[in-house]
Design a protein around this nucleic acid. Structure first.
Length: 599
RNA sequence: GCGCCCGUAGCUCAGCCGGAUAGAGCGUCGGCCUCCGGAGCCGAAGGUCACAGGUUCGAAUCCUGUCGGGCGCGCCA
């Protein structure tokens, strides 16, 4: 993916205009008419309101101050110095000093050829210049199936990764498997309790254990692998444990004691086999779930690996040496407050155990050592309290370099029949990603998840996502694509063929209002991708496809017949139809949604 | 109490590295139409951009404060 070709943009009218303005300014500066020391950056924008213009520039406004001239007067002078171009019909100066360009009919037609020639790469660019970037996302603890909240992180992370790849970054997608903590011990314990329960050794299930049905399934797998070799009598398991919450005790103390008991009864080897069965089953469950969702990783990084080696200790030692970690009150602290965090954070507890934060720093040091130019983490918004310390740690490890970016994803709420679906992790009310996918389909799920900005709460309307009507935005876009395929099969049914060369040779036959609108939308695609990638905002792709492309296409389709008898006109229109299909496919690809030929 | 995110049309949301008369879909109201692909097409009404200051030639957009909503503030993971 390194060295994506530089795309020739001489056919993109917006760039043509920017170039003309640049030349006009250069000329004025050379003639001494503009007292500017540096060459100003030119900005040309698509006019929001077509009544104003097709393209507009505010250079005269921004230059007014440094040039000490009234903006309108400046605009007049720039316009007078503009070289001619037959793609521009006329130029006006409006409002406080905008230079408005009205394009000649057909000025944008050349984009059709560009799109058809670039095909699947149309819209891509090389802004990333082959630099490397790692996107770490989802990274849910493998203690249960993914739920709908994780789905949003998955859809966002995958789409952002695609956007970066499309803009010339070398992207690596990674899942950090938190398989080393106490929660994993509790999963192993839960599995084992269900396993002995299936052998008639029922122990009261702990309040803080994992109650989900999937635990019994894993217990079944354990049974298949181990037979009854790991069964212990219920009485020996429950013997003299501190009381659980239901018996007026402390749920945490109870379950920790149960874990210890299981370890003792099973021995290191037996415990490890139970643990590994649970870990493996859950990681595979998640991997499979995501793969079905179209989310595939380059690497699954196991937290456990940090402990089998000396990564955590090595990281701490490095921070101690550089003075970022100090001892206090029997614990060791990372000097997070030096990097804008509210306070310093413990990395080694007074009992000698390292904290989760310590292994997270070690993990991120590992990322740095792998040489990524940039790192992106996608986190649930409930983790925002960790942003400052994590970025602080990264700066401490890189001498102040700001290489880690964290995208926080707000919560998603599901609605069915206008009613909010309650979402707690309590058994029964838990909505998994798999259930959601099965109900609305992968396409709708991927689309709705990234439809909103990630820092916006998401109201996910299940009924709308399932609707086969044009109210459903995914359907509306996919329908445009299917319609395009249908136009060509319709042509075939009438024993006609599309002469692509003739179409491209007669693009000047395009020029109606609807065609011009559609052409303008297609021309904008590379900018939309560039901006979506730079801001990590895949929702822009959704809105672009929906409001700019699909809408313009449907409107055109409804207004005009493509399959006319005039062959040059027909072939030119079909070229535009084909180009539209290409842009829709490319856009949907970025957000992981399929582009069906028929629906 | 402190910190982060968000307050835009009746509803759900775009627009936010400052730019002209703030947009879309749904809903509401009024007209057409059944045509390559199926309730579709065209149009209208509807907004002090939460509020108050500030910066600027120009603010929904940047800064400060207030109010409202969400989330987070362990030697938990």
């Amino acid at each position: 993916m390194v060295g994506l070709p530089n795309i020739d943009r001489s056919h993109v009218v917006k760039d043509v205009v920017a170039d003309l303005l640049q030349r006009a300014l250069d000329a004025l500066i050379a003639e001494g008419k503009l007292p500017l020391t540096e060459r100003p950056a030119i900005r040309v924008e698509h006019a929001r309101d077509r009544g104003h213009a097709d393209l507009a520039s505010n250079v005269a406004l921004t230059l007014a101050k440094p040039a000490r001239r009234p903006p309108r007067e400046l605009a007049e002078e720039i316009v007078a110095a503009l070289p001619g171009d037959d793609r521009i019909d006329r130029i006006e100066i409006a409002g406080p000093g905008f230079i408005n360009f009205f394009l000649a009919t057909g000025a944008r037609n050349a984009i059709v050829r560009t799109i058809l020639e670039a095909g699947a790469t149309y819209g891509h660019s090389d802004a990333g210049a082959g630099r490397s970037i790692q996107v770490e996302f989802v990274s849910a603890n493998p203690t249960g199936p993914l739920h709908v909240g994780h789905g949003r992180g998955a859809a966002l992370g995958a789409s952002v990764a695609n956007l970066l790849a499309a803009t010339g970054w070398r992207v690596e997608r990674e899942y950090y498997v938190n398989d080393a903590g106490r929660q994993m011990d509790i999963l192993a314990l839960s599995v084992w309790l269900r396993y002995i329960e299936a052998h008639g050794e029922a122990v009261a299930f702990p309040a803080n254990g994992y109650h989900g049905a999937y635990v019994r399934q894993i217990a079944g797998a354990l049974q298949a692998k181990e037979g009854d070799g790991l069964v212990h009598a219920a009485a020996s398991v429950a013997h003299e444990l501190p009381p659980d919450a239901g018996d007026g005790g402390d749920a945490e103390a109870h379950i920790d004691a149960l874990v210890e008991r299981a370890r003792t009864l099973l021995g290191d080897d037996g415990w490890e086999r139970v643990f590994e069965t649970g870990r493996h089953a859950m990681v595979e469950n998640i991997r499979q779930d995501l793969a079905e969702f179209g989310v595939v990783y380059d690497r699954w990084f196991a937290e456990r690996g940090l402990y089998t080696g000396d990564a955590v200790e090595r990281t701490l030692e490095r921070l101690r040496r550089s003075g970022h970690v100090y001892s206090h009150d029997g614990a060791e602290w990372f000097r997070a407050s030096a990097y804008g965090d509210e306070k310093d954070r413990v990395v080694v507890r007074d009992n000698g155990q390292t904290t989760y934060f310590a292994s997270d720093i070690a993990y991120h040091l590992d990322k740095l050592e792998r040489g990524f130019d940039r790192l992106i983490n996608v986190w649930g918004a409930d983790h925002h309290g960790y942003v400052a310390r994590m970025q602080g740690a990264l700066r401490a490890l890189t001498d102040g370099d700001d290489r880690l970016e964290i995208l926080l994803v707000q919560f998603a709420t599901l609605y069915r029949g206008g009613e909010k679906i309650p979402m707690s992790t309590r058994a029964g009310e838990f909505v998994t990603l798999r259930e959601l996918r099965e109900e609305v389909g992968n396409d709708a799920a991927r689309f709705f998840y990234v439809l909103r900005r990630c820092d916006q709460h998401l109201e996910f309307d299940l009924d709308l996502a399932k609707a086969e009507s044009q109210d459903n935005p995914v359907y509306y876009i996919q329908y445009a694509h299917a319609r395009i395929a249908s136009v060509f099969s319709q042509l075939e049914a009438r024993a006609g063929t599309w002469d692509r060369g003739r179409g491209l040779a007669h693009l000047d036959r395009l020029g109606t209002h609807h065609e011009t609108e559609l052409l303008a939308a297609l021309e904008r695609f590379p900018e939309v991708i560039a901006q979506a990638a730079a801001n990590r905002e895949p929702h822009r792709i959704c809105y672009y496809l929906l409001e700019d492309v699909a809408n313009a296409f449907h409107t055109w389709y409804n207004a005009e017949t493509f399959l006319v008898t005039d062959e040059t006109l027909r072939d030119a229109r079909l070229a535009l139809v084909a180009a539209t299909g290409q842009v829709i496919r490319n856009g949907l690809e970025l957000i992981g949604v399929s582009a069906p030929e028929s629906m």
